[in-house]
């Protein structure tokens, strides 16, 4: 064996050694459980885990995915995404544009606009839970909804209210994202447009927006994926209620698995969620790939 082969062998061994911790963890906590989830869907789970489960093949997949409950879950989830993603992006962009200026004290405003990054989903939800309480909440008082059952207990308003809390909590993140994007824009182009006499709004629509499209695409993807995975705010604010009004897919998974002791059912829903996110990511990617213009081109 030559010294070169030996060195290559040693290099290979070191390579495997270095990727082993990460890949081992992925294997145990991402790939194996993903396969196991799909497998669990083939079984009717007993109400408590010490009892035997029954193999039913694809029957449970067909039953769950064909049920009207699943379709309603999907509808509500899509509605939630629709309520949060565009609003979030618009608000973030407006704030970023507002703060993209050089006036004294602007740093303080930037800090304020990014401040909600310090809140977690739980912090924001618990704060709003009490602010929206019909009897003691300041927000419900100001909006004239004092007394009665409040927005979170109203089937029409529960999901929009949860969406509002989500948008608020994400303001900091979207603001930071959009500000960074604005700052990375080539200043010469904007200056040139200014010299050409393009007015503020025209400049924004015709020059800034197209240049920002990659970042908007990114924010949309992150937002949609995050929307499908929004759990904490639902759990803390409405628990999927009232009358299923805020029962999104992820919350149904949690309820089936951990409250109704039906992990087989939940496994089928989980695989559906995985499939949807996979497809969404690809579709969005290819759809936007053609339409977005890259600043570096």
């Amino acid at each position: 064996m030559s010294a070169k082969t030996l060195r290559r062998l040693r290099e290979g061994a070191l390579g495997y050694l270095l990727v082993l911790p990460a890949l081992g963890a992925f294997g145990l906590f991402v790939f194996y459980p993903l396969v196991k989830t799909a497998y669990l869907g083939f079984f009717l789970a007993p109400p408590t885990p010490n009892l035997p489960s029954h193999y039913v093949g694809f029957h449970q997949y067909g039953q769950v995915l064909g049920s009207s409950e699943f379709v309603s879950d999907l509808g509500r989830t899509a509605f939630f995404v629709l309520l949060t993603v565009p609003t979030g992006i618009v608000v973030g962009l407006l704030l970023a544009n507002l703060a993209h200026t050089k006036v004294p004290g602007i740093r303080a405003f930037r800090t304020i606009y990014s401040s909600t990054v310090a809140t977690s989903t739980a912090v924001a939800s618990v704060a709003f839970l009490t602010l929206l309480n019909p009897q003691i909440g300041v927000l419900s008082y100001l909006f004239g909804k004092a007394g009665g059952n409040g927005v979170l207990a109203n089937p029409h308003w529960a999901l929009p209210a949860v969406a509002m809390v989500t948008v608020w909590q994400n303001i900091g993140f979207t603001f930071i994202l959009m500000s960074a994007a604005l700052q990375s824009l080539p200043q010469e182009v904007l200056e040139a447009a200014k010299v050409d006499g393009a007015s503020g709004s025209v400049r924004f629509r015709q020059i800034v927006l197209p240049l920002l499209s990659p970042i908007l695409f990114f924010a949309a993807v992150i937002g949609v994926i995050g929307g499908f995975q929004s759990f904490g705010q639902i759990d803390l604010l409405t628990q999927g209620g009232p009358n299923h009004a805020s029962l999104v897919l992820i919350y149904d998974i949690y309820q089936q698995a951990f409250q109704f002791n039906n992990p087989g059912y939940a496994a089928v829903l989980s695989i559906a969620l995985f499939g949807i996110l996979l497809v969404l990511t690809f579709v969005q990617f290819f759809f936007f790939q053609r339409r977005v213009s890259y600043a570096s081109d």
Partner: peptide
């Protein structure tokens, strides 16, 4: 392939692996 596997984990939401991970 191994690098691609690492990237692929970004596609798997934690929720899809929740139940087996809990069992593990």
């Amino acid at each position: 392939i191994l690098f691609f596997a690492c990237l692929a984990t970004l596609m798997v939401p934690g929720e899809a692996t929740l139940i087996p991970n809990y069992q593990t």
